[in-house]
Amino acid sequence: MAKTSKNLTTSELAIESLPYEQALIELESIVESLESEQNPLDVSLKLFERGQALAAHCSLLLESAHLKVQKLVGESLLPFEEESE
């Protein structure tokens, strides 16, 4: 039950702004909840819709990911420009 209510509270977050790991963790718990827990049907359907959106969001993040490289100078992180070949 605790897990279910956790899902319900996290589901208030806007998917578009979720970082990949967080979206994946939520997706994982939604799948497990749907597979193992007895939720009311309307809750299940909402979870399903959100799960689909999370999966699509994660997939998009993977496709559009760009390696972020920073350079440690002293104690500060600066953007690192790679030499072009």
Binding site: E28, I30, V31, L34, F48, G51, Q52, A55, S59, L62
Partner: peptide
Amino acid sequence: LQDLLASYFSRLSSAT
């Protein structure tokens, strides 16, 4: 990771 997502996606559908 894409494979993992695909498997979650199908588990999501079949569970629902």
